[in-house]
């Protein structure tokens, strides 16, 4: 087990996967809507294609976040340990990073759902 907990196999990048997915989802949704309304539809035009696209982005984003979050949760549950993961051991460092990853995944998922709710209520470019 110790080998798999080596520092070289750990990465801070995994911590920010979920929020980065949120950022991509957010940017993609915004850009899609902005370009559609500026280039392809009149002000009162329908945004139906945008809604479908954003729905697709949302499913993809939630899948990615779910995967990252589950991964984090599993690392948090390694062995028999409880919070606050504050021991000076590779195990607790591993659990802590997993725990923080899982929490960030949760927050990112909520933020993605918030954003997706926008297309539930809006039907045109006004």
């Amino acid at each position: 087990m110790m080998k798999s907990l080596s520092e070289n196999r750990e990465s801070l990048w995994r911590l920010i996967v979920s929020p980065s997915v949120w950022a991509l989802h957010f940017l993609a949704s915004y850009v899609t809507a902005a370009i559609w309304c500026a280039k392809f539809a009149p002000a009162s035009g329908s945004i139906a294609p945008v809604r479908w696209l954003i729905a697709a982005y949302t499913v993809a984003a939630l899948l990615a976040i779910g995967w990252n979050g589950w991964n984090g949760y599993r690392r948090h549950r390694l062995g028999a340990a409880e919070l606050p993961h504050d021991a000076d051991t590779p195990e607790d460092r591993h659990r802590f990073l997993g725990f923080a990853t899982a929490l960030l995944a949760g927050l990112s998922a909520i933020a993605v759902i918030f954003a997706a709710m926008a297309v539930v209520y809006f039907q045109d470019c006004r």
Binding site: Y30, C37, F114, A118, F122, C125, R126
Partner: peptide, 20 residues
């Protein structure tokens, strides 16, 4: 005067940031 959908996206994120 941005489209309502754009405003809604940013409004959603602005509410979400209150959580953390």
């Amino acid at each position: 005067g941005l489209p309502g959908i754009s405003l809604a996206l940013f409004s959603a994120a602005s509410e979400a940031v209150a959580i953390p």
